[in-house]
Simulated scan of single mutants.
Amino acid sequence: MRSVELFAGAGGLAIGMANAGFDHAAVIEWNHDACETFRENQRHHMSSVERWPLFEGDVRKFDYSTISEEVMVVSGGPPCQPFSLGGKHQGYLDARDMFPEAVRAVRELRPKAFIFENVKGLLRESFADYFEYIHLQLTHPNLIRRKDESWGEHRIRLERHHTSRRVRSEYNVVFRLLNAANYGVPQRRERVFLVGFRSDLGVQWNFPEEKHSEDSLLHSQWITGEYWDRHKVAKRHRPTLALRQAARVDKLAELLNDSKEPWLTVRDALVGLPDPEKQPRNGIANHVFSPGARSYPGHTGSPYDEPAKTLKAGDHGVPGGENMLARVDGSVRYFTTREAARLQTFPDDYIFRGAWTEAMRQLGNAVPVRLAEVVASSVADTLLKMRGHE
């Protein structure tokens, strides 16, 4: 199944799409270091990316007529800084808002489906009107904004068009805020996914079921002890149960079975990786210790035995607290690029190019590969079933 990947970044969504069975007809990204990451992995024949046609440049200049074969799915993560909780919150006033280009790709390629993702901040109350506007544009991508028409005026015209009994939606669009930890990613990372299917296909689809939970993790740690046994942590070295978790654990003691798997933790993610501070010459790509980490109020690092906090991409260097490991003994250090890649569920043979701060920025902007694959696989299954009934 052919697909087109917009705003590819480090490739998290693109690799997840490939793992789900999609074959990219074009991968579009403007950031040079991110493109060098793709090229590096193509040079060493990393199977997921080896044959991707990479376009380094402004997506606004990409000519979709150069893609001759039918495109089943358009996917991508329009730059999220305009809506990020950690950014300047300018939204549609920010020149980096690329949702209009996502709509253009849908309009010109007319795929059977699309998958777009963005940061949780997109759902902020202050962006509610613009989020509705995005939703309406993706529902009716052929109702184009006129010259000299403001986005607010265009939204009103879309609303009137959408509520008219004489028209039918071009795409049926749903959205949901997904926590990556609930899908087997060792990181608390919330992303908004917008998924649409062409309305003439008549398909029914819903977001995949969550398969992991915090309750199951607490049960495996504090009721059965299976978590500590699996990691071969002696009882005398096991941390003390935090007060904030104690009440929940008391209730969990009554559970005989939980149908969901435990959340994965930082400890789970880093299995097999040596401590880069103690073994600096470890021979593992991108696994280099970076000094200077420090803890301060509100920025205390990710506890070893919980999913990591959301990895972030700072405009000026690496955000300290969000990208640190908080060891059991209370000390902190920065995650290496390889460790951050593990937390984002990139494969170990995927190499990141650029300085440490730039590689961490690529990872901070990325979609976890596993989360992308879960959503993409569900879309792929629906399209394959539809094709089987044609």
Rank of each mutant, 00 (worst) to 15 (best):
M1C: 14
M1Y: 14
A8V: 02
G9T: 04
G16K: 00
F22G: 00
D23C: 12
A25N: 00
A26G: 10
A26M: 06
I28R: 00
A34C: 11
C35S: 01
E36G: 06
F38M: 05
R39D: 08
R39K: 09
S47L: 12
F55H: 11
V59F: 05
K61S: 11
Y64R: 04
T66E: 13
T66V: 13
T66K: 10
I67H: 03
V73F: 02
V74H: 04
G91Y: 05
L93E: 13
R96F: 05
R96E: 04
R96C: 01
F99S: 08
P100C: 12
E101A: 06
A102G: 06
A113E: 13
E117T: 07
N118D: 04
K120H: 11
R124C: 13
R124Q: 14
A128S: 11
D129T: 14
H135F: 08
L143G: 08
I144T: 15
R146E: 10
D148E: 11
S150K: 06
S150M: 04
E153W: 11
H154C: 10
I156F: 11
R157I: 03
E159P: 10
R160S: 14
H161G: 09
H162N: 15
T163P: 09
T163K: 12
V173H: 01
F175W: 14
L177N: 07
V185G: 02
Q187F: 00
R191I: 04
E209F: 14
K211V: 09
H212N: 04
D215G: 08
S220R: 08
I223C: 07
E226N: 10
W228E: 02
V233A: 02
A234H: 14
R238S: 05
A242V: 13
D250A: 07
A253V: 06
S259R: 10
K260T: 07
P262K: 06
L264A: 08
T265P: 00
A269D: 02
K278W: 15
P280W: 06
N282T: 05
N286C: 14
G292I: 01
G301R: 10
G301Y: 02
P303G: 02
A308Q: 02
T310D: 00
A313L: 03
D315H: 14
P319I: 07
G321K: 00
R327N: 12
G330C: 03
A340N: 03
G354Y: 07
A359I: 13
R361S: 00
N365W: 01
N365C: 01
N365Y: 02
A366S: 14
V379S: 09
D381Q: 11
D381V: 12
